[in-house]
Design a protein around this nucleic acid. Sequence first.
DNA 1: CATGAATGAGTCTTCATTCAT
DNA 2: CATGAATGAAGACTCATTCAT
Lengths: 221, 221, 221, 221
Amino acid sequence: MIKTNKPDTDMPRRSIRRLREKKNRYNTILKAAEKLFSKKGFNQTSIEEIADLAEVSTGAVYFYFKNKDDLLIKLMHEIGHYLRKLLGKEFEKTDLTLNGFNNIPYAFLKNFCMGHPEKITIFFRESVGQSLEVEEQRKQLFVKLTLDIKDAITKISKEQGKNFISDFSIELIAVCIVGIYERVACHYFLWQDGSKNIQDIAEETASFMLGGINSLFKTGL
Amino acid sequence: MIKTNKPDTDMPRRSIRRLREKKNRYNTILKAAEKLFSKKGFNQTSIEEIADLAEVSTGAVYFYFKNKDDLLIKLMHEIGHYLRKLLGKEFEKTDLTLNGFNNIPYAFLKNFCMGHPEKITIFFRESVGQSLEVEEQRKQLFVKLTLDIKDAITKISKEQGKNFISDFSIELIAVCIVGIYERVACHYFLWQDGSKNIQDIAEETASFMLGGINSLFKTGL
Amino acid sequence: MIKTNKPDTDMPRRSIRRLREKKNRYNTILKAAEKLFSKKGFNQTSIEEIADLAEVSTGAVYFYFKNKDDLLIKLMHEIGHYLRKLLGKEFEKTDLTLNGFNNIPYAFLKNFCMGHPEKITIFFRESVGQSLEVEEQRKQLFVKLTLDIKDAITKISKEQGKNFISDFSIELIAVCIVGIYERVACHYFLWQDGSKNIQDIAEETASFMLGGINSLFKTGL
Amino acid sequence: MIKTNKPDTDMPRRSIRRLREKKNRYNTILKAAEKLFSKKGFNQTSIEEIADLAEVSTGAVYFYFKNKDDLLIKLMHEIGHYLRKLLGKEFEKTDLTLNGFNNIPYAFLKNFCMGHPEKITIFFRESVGQSLEVEEQRKQLFVKLTLDIKDAITKISKEQGKNFISDFSIELIAVCIVGIYERVACHYFLWQDGSKNIQDIAEETASFMLGGINSLFKTGL
DNA sequence: CATGAATGAGTCTTCATTCAT
DNA sequence: CATGAATGAAGACTCATTCAT
């Protein structure tokens, strides 16, 4: 990962500029890759095409990224990070009521799926079924995402003073929720044109999730 | 028919055997592909390896399958068909109560995921992010699967005399359920070693799904 | 080459029929090859396609023809034979005057080029630039054609009591005439649509040839 | 144009050398292809062989040429260009008399056929009967060649104040002449060993052509 | 740092030909 | 004789990656 060093005062100007340009190049290349991977598919995109679109040489791509897989991995991480932050931020807005939970799916659909079709393409399609390395990174990302959700559910349940029917429940809930997000995104944004009413999908998705969670609470007798 | 030597039917023995061998070859190749695709990944498997494992020539592979993609598509369809039949059969065993719905996830985990790890690998991983043709077929398969579930939910809701809060609900439920199946399979069988207690996962998954469905029923006022 | 035996009286009927069918098959296959070679090109046509069009098995093609080249060679010979016969017949109609020579080009254009576009395609294009064997046969055919023309010119010159400026002249004339036929055919029937007035082309071509021949006569001083 | 291409000032030496090497590589590969195509035939030559002879990798071949056909097309064009220039130069030496026309065939035989047997092989044999693209380019080349000759004949006829019997005559003459060149080259240099006295062939060929042309002049009444 | 020419292993795919039935 | 499944060698082409300049 390229370091995001803030320009220290004792750093010569040239170095600063070079650093900024470096950062720029890195991002330019990554954006080009994102565009092409989502448009043509990872396997159908060549390094040369990426270099062309980014207006750099193929060698430059290899200066900033270890190899083609690395490009995909970096993208995945970026997207994963973005998604986790988005969901996390949305969660913090809630009042830790299950009801407050309601608008997270909306944010997911509106800000993530709708706003960034390339991202869902890469995150849910192009990064699947590639090399071992990519798969491993993908797994770790999903695990983190699942943990985030686990934490959120835990917080809520604590706040609500409720317990789950088993220690395992929370994890399972998180896994289910991730699955729902994934398939809803694919179904309505990759396979359909995303023209369905987002509000509707979000509401019912939230209901479904809540219903699911509730059903795993230990009935308080 | 001119030939008089009918052993049992009007089909000569030779033809029968040849037909069987043909069917065998086709399946032998398909099984070899399944094994390798799931073990090494689609992209990392060469036609030659498949031919070797199936003990045929590369040409034979191309006699039975249009190309490499075709091999994957045929596998996908076979697996998809198998899964739909399995779920369908399990659904028919239920008493159309939501509770009867309970053991379907178990069947999925036990008979599909546990019994056929290669199948989930191909269905949920290796067939993703490949060519346009593969993606199209995959989509159609998932749409069928979703429709199956929609039908099932519809039947149950009718039997129960309940209505959903919107016309759209049933589809959304189906999409969510598919997503849950997918991610649970990946999470516990591709990424973990499948050693978790299946019974537990199945039960809670079923609970989650039921809770989700229930929460989209129109409250009966 | 399949023998064209006439049915001897002592030949069993079955054999006769078989012979006729054999001859038929041979021709059916050859016609299929002619059609496809001229339409798609020799290299772009597979034996299977020929077999399909002829409604026989690929094995049958190999029963009647040694290999793919053989098919082309047989076609070349057939076409060459046809052309030589056509030109020969036309020559015999002349009064051995150079003027009588006039309508041969017309016959070539009308009956050969116009009537059989597939034949010129194969004879002047598809049979060129293939294997050594094909090239050798093609050469021999052209040599024969050239000899035919040499003979014709010789006859005429004798009849007219004229001599050529060198012993070599007649051959050269023949070579030139063959070249003219070839290129005129290609130019107006392969590369253009053959819509130019045949009569015109024929007349001027004849004039050109005659002028050429005349100019190689020893001036009678 | 920004570059003031002074040979050494603003162009770094490295660039110059690289440019020369690039040009060299391109030509080395092209020469290797020419050699092999003419010796073994286009279809019988593999890219690997070309690369080996040129002492480059197969990839390098594809860096400089789109594909195998492209190699042939580039060769054809080079040869066609060479031939047209040769004939053009020879024509300019004439005094626009028909007699001056005499030594063009000699130049063709001596400098083109005799000096470059590989070129006639490729131009008149190996480039025939290949793909559609090759055929199209070949056609265009021959059309240009025919036009060159048309122009030449036109000039001469104007200079001589003679008219042809029809507007179409000039084109036909050009077509015939091209045909003669082609077949003479094939006959005496591809099919025979080129040992015939070139002088003789040239003279009589010229005579034949002139006779042909003359016979299409309108008789001056 | 940047370039982009060069590499060459890797793969899919084709198809003429054969031969057991 | 006819069939058509099976062979397997052959070859075009791609492209991630490297490295001299």
